[in-house]
Design a protein around this nucleic acid. Sequence first.
DNA 1: CCCCGATTATGACAGCGGTCATAGCGGTCG
DNA 2: CGACCGCTATGACCGCTGTCATAATCGGGG
Lengths: 199, 199
Amino acid sequence: MADSDRGPRERMVFSAAQLLRRDGVAGTGMRQVAAHAGAPRGSLQHYFPGGKEQMVNEAVAWAGRYAARRVDRFLAGLEVPSPSGLFAAMVAQWSDELTATGSLPGCPVAAATVDSADTADSTRQAAANAFACWREPVARALTGMDVPESRSAALATLMVSALEGAVLIARAERDPAALTTVARELGPLLDGAVTRPEN
Amino acid sequence: MADSDRGPRERMVFSAAQLLRRDGVAGTGMRQVAAHAGAPRGSLQHYFPGGKEQMVNEAVAWAGRYAARRVDRFLAGLEVPSPSGLFAAMVAQWSDELTATGSLPGCPVAAATVDSADTADSTRQAAANAFACWREPVARALTGMDVPESRSAALATLMVSALEGAVLIARAERDPAALTTVARELGPLLDGAVTRPEN
DNA sequence: CCCCGATTATGACAGCGGTCATAGCGGTCG
DNA sequence: CGACCGCTATGACCGCTGTCATAATCGGGG
């Protein structure tokens, strides 16, 4: 949300991620990205000589790092750390945006996957990396909450999957119900995976 | 899969759904749909006077009905009905396609949601309807397996969410691991929701 | 002062997209 | 036969997109 002046290049990557959320890859033009970032059009071919594909890939990578950062921040914000609490925080980031602003742009990584997984292989790999970047801190957080290492990675995958799917449904319905439902139903399962209940 | 001769119109809707899976909404052209369906180009404005939006909406609706039909068929194919068995069958439909053909086109409903939820409201509603069409038979199947009615709808949402998210990840990674993981981790939770274990 | 690299400014191009307009078939029915 | 109707056939238009080519601008060092 801090779109401040971090150099025009980073601003463009950020704007690309933002527009990707709304319109998808094919629906977002490069001129549009430049305009949204307040950057001159001539900077496009200068900063992204690899063309649109490079820009999309960087936006996806940025989103992956952003998601990972958020996970760490959620952990720091939990007074009593628990898997369900972490998941609830992850879900709340999305439902809050919908209830606050009234609209729910999707996940840029999902957009890149849907739009160009079968047409641009580098973008597909960028999306895979982003998902990995995201799941990794989640899995590590779970092991830190006494979830056995053998399951923490799998549960992280489940959490991200359920979240992404719920975002899709909530977006289609313009209703955060799917998000809250998933958080409520999945929470107990996650907490049940801790070996020594610490409460 | 049965692209047979059900009239050119239905063939075009089917082809649209198929192309949507791979290239998304903006990445799929109407001429391309006609060509894929072996239909004359002039039929486009004749059968879809509402333009691309109408075509996409019908493809999405078709996909929703198709998913619902599949759920019923999965139920019929289960010797011992159980929530985890149903979910495993739903997941297997996707992982099997990836392992068999080597590639994994996504879900057309997800594509429509990602690409035009914020730009074409009728498409957004079509996607919401498709999700509802899909979850409804799942929820009903759960109640038929002695899952309390209060939870069956929520669990159906969770199942569809987790599946959609796992499809995304598997598509990005070109690896069905996320799908099998989600099925394995979510199965016990689902079976734990039956009041009287029938086994 | 002048050169130089980084950045920006334009303009053009070729392609494709959806959509409209118009006309042509090929039957069937009155 | 002539009228109507479902369907098809083209062709054109306009807007947009990604990309390239070329030149201008600007801030600092040599």
